[in-house]
Computed example of a mutant assay.
Amino acid sequence: MKKYVLTLALAGALFVLPDNADAALGDQTLREGMRHGDVVELQEALRQRGYFTFHTSTGFFGTITTDSVRRFQRDAGITVDGIFGPQSFRALTGSNSSTSTSSNSSVQQTSATSQFSRTLREGMRGDDVVALQEALRQRGHFTHHTSTGFFGTITRDAVRSFQRSAGITVDGIAGPQTFRALNNTTASSGSSNVSAGHVSNPTNSASSTLNAVINTGKSLIGTPYVWAGSTPAGFDCSGFLQYVFAQHGISIPRTVATIHSATTRVSTPQVGDLVFFETYAPGPSHAGIYLGNGEFLHAGSSTGVTITKMSNSYWSQRYLGAGRINQ
């Protein structure tokens, strides 16, 4: 009888275990005893913060993972129960913190144009939303009596109205394409008038294109991580790379492994090169764009699109090398 019950239990576990391709941390509450691709992501995220110290990410939520979650919760000042639910997810990703004062969310304004450093979508708040509303108002698309700083349905409809008039993708999301249209500029980065923090003074056509790629990537900072995501609604690491390069006419493969194979190895990365890391599987499984000064831009599973130091204790141990895209 015990053997029969065990067989049924194992069969049930195999039946409910989803493919890792459907995994996205935050989609479900995780607790002790579970096996899932989300658990791998949780363990990796906790490892980056020094809480999960087991030598490998197993995908099984056991006592080690429970203790890691508890330590993180205790330090975060939230309920300490060892269960990774919505409260813990918000604390881990920082999605419950204000973005209006972040330097990554600042708005660089001139007399007629606005520079934005993240993609804006319904539900967001911040000074950059105010700037977006003002820019739309100047063009006759935002008609609310005041700029609220909240991206609600009125702002979404205003963005759609503007996108329709500009002949660009109509999705109600204000991203790089919308910002370029608002600023009445092209995708070219040949101009030296780029905002502070962006790459400037390109010396040739290739570097000019890479500067434009980086600037587009930086404008997406704050975009959430979504497993298999490849749009400004959410990215995984390779989807992010493919998207930003595609905005400037450069086609690269979809997966990290194939991107790695398509690049030329370089011993020391230069600005615009790709840097590769070995994370949950042998070989290259994560990649980002090298920015110089020991930093890279990437879509992290626990951070979304962000800038990270190469010297970070988690990433430095997993660095495989750099590659250059042939243009």
Rank of each mutant, 00 (worst) to 15 (best):
48 Q>I: 09
315 W>G: 06
60 F>T: 12
306 T>S: 15
103 S>L: 14
88 S>G: 10
109 Q>Y: 09
31 R>G: 13
287 A>C: 11
173 I>C: 06
94 G>T: 01
159 V>G: 05
30 L>Q: 15
227 W>I: 04
178 T>N: 01
44 E>K: 14
275 V>E: 04
244 V>W: 06
154 I>W: 02
74 R>Q: 12
113 T>Y: 05
158 A>S: 13
202 P>Y: 02
272 G>S: 04
187 A>Y: 13
311 S>Q: 08
201 N>M: 05
235 F>W: 08
147 S>A: 12
107 V>N: 07
90 R>Q: 15
55 H>N: 13
78 I>H: 03
40 V>P: 01
93 T>A: 03
121 R>Y: 03
74 R>S: 11
5 V>G: 03
275 V>L: 00
239 G>N: 09
265 R>T: 13
181 A>Q: 07
172 G>L: 00
155 T>H: 07
56 T>Q: 11
60 F>S: 11
36 H>T: 08
262 A>S: 13
105 S>E: 07
317 Q>H: 13
6 L>M: 14
259 I>R: 11
31 R>M: 15
73 Q>C: 07
300 G>L: 05
301 S>P: 00
88 S>E: 07
13 A>Q: 12
116 F>K: 07
234 G>R: 00
100 S>A: 11
284 P>Q: 01
299 A>L: 11
95 S>V: 12
65 T>A: 04
206 A>S: 15
171 D>R: 09
197 G>Y: 05
317 Q>V: 09
8 L>Q: 03
184 N>D: 15
1 M>T: 13
172 G>E: 00
208 S>H: 12
209 T>K: 07
33 G>A: 10
41 E>R: 06
295 E>W: 01
128 D>Y: 02
174 A>S: 08
312 N>S: 13
131 A>T: 00
15 F>R: 10
327 Q>S: 11
251 S>H: 15
290 Y>T: 06
121 R>L: 05
109 Q>T: 15
8 L>K: 02
243 Y>H: 10
302 S>K: 03
